[in-house]
């Protein structure tokens, strides 16, 4: 088990190094000079050169790469070109919205998908199964911004249970903050839950057909017991993979929902930073997201090993 963890950790570090090089190189080749962008069309070449020196853009690529990585390791993500404030503070502010939102949506999605997927698999071929498959098809197909607007209309405009958007901040208390995130989380969770429920169903159907489930029935287990004790855990591996992918997506991919609900999240920050050629912010946020994806993958790998003893090779 220790060997397995060490192995996964080593590959985590290697992935981070490779990713940082790729992110840095990609930003290098993006057209557009931040200094001239910041100073506007009428800036003199001298002023641009001075600003480039001030921003450290005139150093060689290697020196800038090392400086960037070294800074990140010490928590210094640099200063935003456009806002003139430390990037770490900006990102931290946005994470306070995006991370809870992603976790909230993921929790909802899992809480919906597991029972629904298991229910459909256990009632394979019945009206229940057909109904679930139809509903999840719809859940995948409906655009989430449209669903988000529907939620706003019903629950914010008509029923007035929730506000239509904005985020009061965590200082206003946990409950108001969570309340503000509820509609966006539901809007985000619906398509994810639909996908996850379908994966859960098909994976469980596969394992229900396995020989060891028949063996369990021959021991005297009821159909339900065989499903719970034997099929379910064996069906989890593909489901865990999807959950990992969904978390990464929810963290960075919520930009449309953030816009619908006026939430100051990471997605909007990246979008604004890219339009303003604020490369320091883009680099940092992209690297942060890469880090999040890799850590989530690591967690998923550990979850695999927790589920499947064949992966914990004795060392």
């Amino acid at each position: 088990m220790l060997g397995y963890v060490a192995n996964r950790l080593a590959s985590l570090v290697a992935s981070l190094v490779v990713a940082s090089v790729v992110v840095f190189a990609a930003i290098e080749v993006v057209p557009g000079d931040p200094a001239s962008y910041m100073l506007g069309m009428n800036a003199t070449p001298e002023a641009v050169a001075a600003l480039r020196a001030e921003l450290g853009l005139d150093a060689g690529p290697l020196a800038r790469y090392l400086g960037w990585v070294g800074g990140m390791l010490t928590g210094d993500f640099g200063v935003s070109y456009t806002y003139r404030t430390p990037v770490s503070g900006m990102v931290a502010d946005r994470l306070q919205v995006s991370l809870p939102l992603a976790l909230y949506a993921l929790a909802l999605s899992t809480a919906i998908a597991f029972p629904v997927g298991i229910w459909a698999a256990a009632r394979r071929g019945t009206a229940v199964d057909a109904g679930v498959m139809g509903a999840t098809q719809l859940g995948v197909a409906v655009p989430n911004f449209w669903f988000a607007m529907l939620l706003v209309l019903v629950f914010a405009v008509n029923l007035r249970w929730f506000s239509a958007g904005g985020f009061p901040g965590w200082n206003a208390g946990v409950w108001p903050a969570l309340k503000a995130l509820t509609l966006p989380a539901i809007a985000l969770a619906l398509p994810q839950a639909s996908i996850l429920a379908r994966v859960m169903r098909s994976s469980l159907l596969d394992t229900l057909g396995e020989d060891f489930v028949r063996t369990a029935r021959a021991k005297g287990l009821t159909r339900g017991q065989a499903l719970r004790r034997h099929a379910l855990r064996n069906a989890l591996i593909p489901v865990l993979t999807i959950i990992g992918l969904q978390f990464s997506f929810l963290l960075a991919g919520a930009i449309i929902i953030e816009n619908v609900f006026f939430l100051p999240g990471l997605g909007r920050l990246v979008f604004q930073a890219i339009s303003a050629r604020d490369l320091v912010v883009v680099e940092s946020v992209v690297m942060l997201l890469v880090f999040a994806v890799i850590v989530v993958n690591f967690a998923v790998d550990l979850a695999y090993a927790a589920v499947d003893p064949r992966l914990r090779r004795r060392v």
Partner: peptide, 18 residues
């Protein structure tokens, strides 16, 4: 399982791997 026991052909897949 109590009065009637059964064993199957494929020992590689007849046991729960987990």
């Amino acid at each position: 399982g109590r009065d009637v026991g059964m064993i199957f052909q494929e020992p590689m897949t007849a046991l729960n791997p987990l």
